[in-house]
């Protein structure tokens, strides 16, 4: 049995009267690949925000690699090894693709406060590797804000990888991508998961992506996990069909 990497216990979050995340429990093991599915407003993005310290939790605890990261600031959680790619692309639009990734790499190297070094000499090899891996090698000089939507999503993933994460959170990694780009991206995610033993937690609306690429699937509904299991189990589950997949799924 591989090592437990993430353990979430009794997590709760309210926004005013809305109970956005309800007594949420989750265990992730190294090398796992879990997809969280659920209708809009189920609490998927809120969950990611709690895991990455963007929102404070009301109660519950988050252990990452045995370390308590509950309510730690985002930058500390990032340095601990949780990287996140966003649903709505969240990049540095006026920097080039290469500068985007290089700056993220330098941050991971602990160079964010290096005033005397030269940015164009540090971490460039690592940056090239990541850019190649994400299929952006032909775009490095382009200002990120001018990329196509699909390329922006790739850059989004590249930024997340630059943090050398142990756990990668992907919020709808293929939304807005063409079929071809979706295929490429998910092949990359699988590769990261298999070759680099990177643990992946992702949300996705595209059921083909979910059932072909996740080891396990969890259905989130009204802030609660209804079902967890292998893709096959979840697909056959009656509750899932009723709530989410619809009759003909």
């Amino acid at each position: 049995m591989s090592r437990k990497i993430l353990e979430v216990t009794g997590l709760n979050k309210h926004f005013g009267g809305l109970h956005a995340v309800k007594d949420f429990n989750l265990e992730l093991f190294e090398g796992d690949s879990l997809a969280i599915i659920g209708p809009n407003g189920a609490g998927k993005t809120t969950l990611f925000n709690l895991l990455t310290g963007y929102h404070k939790v009301d109660s519950g605890s988050i252990l990452f690699g045995g370390m308590d990261i509950t309510n730690r600031p985002s930058h500390e959680i990032a340095r601990a090894g949780i990287s996140r790619a966003f649903q709505i692309t969240n990049i540095f639009p006026k920097l080039t693709v290469f500068e985007n990734v290089r700056s993220a790499v330098q941050t991971q190297m602990g160079k964010a406060f290096d005033v005397f070094g030269r940015a164009d000499k540090i971490g460039t090899e690592e940056t090239e590797n990541i850019v190649d891996l994400c299929g952006l090698d032909k775009r490095i000089r382009i200002v990120a804000g001018e990329l196509s939507q699909g390329d922006k999503k790739k850059l989004e993933l590249a930024l997340a990888l630059a943090g050398k994460p142990k756990l990668l959170l992907l919020d709808e990694p293929t939304a807005g991508m063409s079929l071809e780009e979706t295929r490429e991206t998910m092949i990359l995610v699988d590769r990261l998961n298999e070759e680099f033993n990177l643990t992946v937690l992702f949300t996705e609306h595209d059921m083909a992506v979910v059932f072909n690429h996740a080891h396990r699937v969890a259905l989130l509904h009204n802030g609660e996990i209804i079902v967890v299991g292998t893709p096959e189990q979840v697909r056959m589950n009656e509750t899932v069909q009723r709530i989410y997949l619809g009759e003909d799924a």
Binding site: Y54, S74, A78, N90, I91, F92
Partner: peptide, 12 residues
């Protein structure tokens, strides 16, 4: 460009 993302990448 993006303070939130910078924080998520590990910048204080």
């Amino acid at each position: 460009e993006n303070q939130q993302r910078a924080a998520f990448l590990g910048i204080n």
